[in-house]
Amino acid sequence: MGRRVLIAIPFLWLLILFLIPFLIVFKISLSDYALARPPYLPQYNPDEGLWALISQLDFETYAFIFSDSLYINAYLSSLQIAAICTLACLALGYPMAYAMARAPKRWQPLLVMLVILPFWTSFLIRVYAWIGILKTEGLLNVFLLWTGAIAEPLAIYNTNIAVCIGIIYTYLPFMILPLYATLERMDDSLLEAAEDLGCSRLSAFWSITLPLSLPGIIAGSFLVFIPAVGEFVIPDLLGGSSNLMIGKTLWVEFFNNRDWTVASAVAMLMLAGLIIPIVLFQRQQERDREAGR
């Protein structure tokens, strides 16, 4: 009995804070835009019953989204930016995680703390700080002009490059930590065994270290990719008005156009698109657990 109560707690949590809101958003996405408050129809009327409500729902909004290239493009550009940022995080994070895992044992807790350290400051403040660095008269341009490396200030702020810098900076720890975790528990004698059997240092890395760190690569990539696709704050603050990532499109629909039905449908489609990588990620985690590694 006590055990059931214990299991019920997370389910209840998910039911109230995820499943019910999800159903509400899904229902809105199936409604029609209306000049009303809230701005959609139909709304639940206790006199007519639930069936009357359901019979008025339709997929019109979804059809509209698929007919307008704006949304498709926003979706594709989000995927593209998220993919680029994931690869960049991997390229930057792997050497860092590797160096951390190979550092003397007594240094490792300190290094892990340094990776987590940025979380001690609010995410929003850190993104604002990047504005100060990247804008036309910002720190970076002032410094580069001073060194004489450039004659004209670089226009990074309000471009996709700034968005990528922001995403990479913000999500790098999520790449480093799972990579470090897999690399750190790797037995050093495996590399010695590989060398003993004829590998050079480099080929031992390719044939042993890299495949064994694959779970970490996959975990880190998903942890960066999934939230990066739906990222709103970073493209809003660093990307300017030209940026059309899906999270930002959603925000514009909801707050500027007050079109809740389109905003909800966009959110539903984004979730549907992300379910595939999320399920893949879950399956990988399960396989790891089964392998006992």
Partner: peptide, 27 residues
């Protein structure tokens, strides 16, 4: 180490966990 006609059996065995028995032996 990779040029010596000497091989070692490690205390922990150091078997490559991602390779099958046959691939370990053929490594």
């Amino acid at each position: 180490p990779n040029a010596r006609p000497v091989n070692m059996m490690f205390q922990s065995y150091a078997l490559f966990p991602h390779l099958s028995v046959a691939d370990n032996i053929a490594f």
